[in-house]
C-alpha cells in the first residue's frame, strides 16, 4: 500500500528531476530555432537573423521528396507485415500454453535486443551469400523483422486483459471462428493494434542502422539525413527536414499514448 499523505519532494530531488527532463527536451527544441536561422555555413549561436525561406527551399528539393516517399512506403508495408505476424504470434502465445513458448518470446525480442549493426550486417551477409540484389524489398525485410516486436508487445498486453470467456461465449452463441474474430476479438484488440502499428511505423520511418546495410544505393529519409550529417551540402535544408521529422514522429507517439493509456503502461497512475 502506498501512503496517502501528500508530501512534497525534497528540493534537491525536484531540481535534479527537472534538470534531467530539461536535458532530454531542450536539444530537440533547439532544432526548431535553427530551422529559421539565416546562417548558411555554420551552426552559429545565437542565429544572426530569422527567416522562413528555407521551408520553400526544402519544398523545392526533389531528393527530399523522393527520400520521404520511399520512407513512407517502406514504413507502411513493414507495419502491415509486422501487424499480421505480431498479432498471430501474440494470439498464439497468450491464448495457449505449449512447449517452447518462452523461446518464441525471446525470438521476437531478439532483433531489437541485439545491437542494430548485428541485425544489419547479418542481413547483408545473408543477401550476399544468397545473391539477392538490394531492392525496396530488402529494406522491408529488415524493417518488418524488428517491427514485429512492437506490435507483439502491445497485442500481448491487451490479450492478457481480454477475458477468454468472451470468445467462448461468442462461440456458444453460434458464431463461427471468423465471426468471433471479426465481432469479438478485433474490437477488443483494435486500439492496441492501432497503437502498435503506429509505433512500428515510427520505428521503421526513423530506422537508419539496419537500413544502411540493406538499402544499397536507395535513400530513405534517415539515410538522406545521415548523408547530410556526414557531408553537409545545404545545412538550413537539413534543419528544416529535422524539424519536420520531429513533428511527424510526435503525432503517432501521442496518438499511441492516448490509445493505450487506460492500459498497464502507466500502472499506478491513479493510485
Amino acid at each position: 500500500m502506498r501512503s496517502d499523505r501528500s508530501q512534497s519532494a525534497p528540493r534537491g530531488l525536484k531540481i535534479a528531476a527537472a534538470a534531467g527532463l530539461a536535458f532530454l527536451h531542450l536539444p530537440i527544441l533547439l532544432i526548431f530555432v535553427y530551422a529559421f536561422t539565416t546562417e548558411e555555413k555554420s551552426y552559429q549561436w545565437p542565429p544572426p537573423g530569422l527567416t522562413t525561406q528555407w521551408f520553400a527551399a526544402t519544398w523545392a528539393r526533389p531528393d527530399v521528396w523522393q527520400a520521404l516517399g520511399l520512407s513512407v512506403q517502406v514504413a507502411a508495408i513493414s507495419t502491415a507485415i509486422a501487424l499480421v505476424l505480431g498479432t498471430l504470434c501474440a494470439a498464439a502465445v497468450s491464448q495457449t500454453r505449449f512447449f517452447g513458448r518462452e523461446a518464441i518470446s525471446l525470438l521476437v525480442i531478439l532483433p531489437i535486443a541485439l545491437p542494430g549493426i548485428i541485425t544489419g550486417i547479418a542481413l547483408r551477409s545473408a543477401f550476399s551469400l544468397a545473391e539477392i540484389p538490394f531492392s525496396f524489398w530488402t529494406i522491408v525485410l529488415g524493417h518488418a523483422t524488428f517491427c514485429v516486436v512492437v506490435v507483439y508487445n502491445n497485442a500481448v498486453a491487451r490479450f492478457r486483459r481480454t477475458s477468454g470467456s468472451l470468445i467462448e461465449a461468442s462461440m456458444d452463441l453460434g458464431a463461427d471462428g471468423f465471426q468471433t474474430f471479426r465481432h469479438v476479438i478485433l474490437p477488443n484488440i483494435g486500439t492496441a493494434l492501432l497503437a502498435g502499428g503506429m509505433l512500428a511505423f515510427a520505428l521503421s520511418f526513423d530506422e537508419v542502422i539496419v537500413t544502411t546495410f540493406t538499402a544499397g544505393q536507395q535513400q530513405t529519409l534517415p539515410i538522406w539525413m545521415l548523408e547530410e550529417l556526414v557531408r553537409p551540402r545545404q545545412r538550413p535544408v537539413t534543419n528544416v527536414v529535422a524539424m519536420i521529422v520531429v513533428l511527424a514522429t510526435l503525432l503517432p507517439i501521442l496518438a499511441a499514448y492516448y490509445l493505450t493509456r487506460e492500459g498497464d503502461q502507466i500502472a499506478g497512475a491513479g493510485k
Binding site: 527532463l21 532530454l24 527536451h25 536539444p27 530537440i28 533547439l30 532544432i31 535553427y34 551552426y43 549561436w45 509505433l199 515510427a202 526513423d206 537508419v208 534517415p222 539525413m225 545521415l226 550529417l229 537539413t238 529535422a242 521529422v245 520531429v246 514522429t249 510526435l250 507517439i253 501521442l254 499514448y257 493509456r261 503502461q265 502507466i266 499506478g268 497512475a269
Partner: peptide, 25 residues
C-alpha cells in the same frame, strides 16, 4: 504523472538522427 511519462516517451521515440543532429548543433 502523465506529463513525466510523455516527457520520457517522446525523447525515446523521436528520431535518433535528429537527436544526434541537435547535439552537433
Amino acid at each position: 504523472k502523465a506529463l513525466f511519462y510523455l516527457g520520457v516517451m517522446l525523447p525515446l521515440w523521436s528520431s535518433y538522427l535528429v537527436k544526434i543532429y541537435a547535439w552537433k548543433l
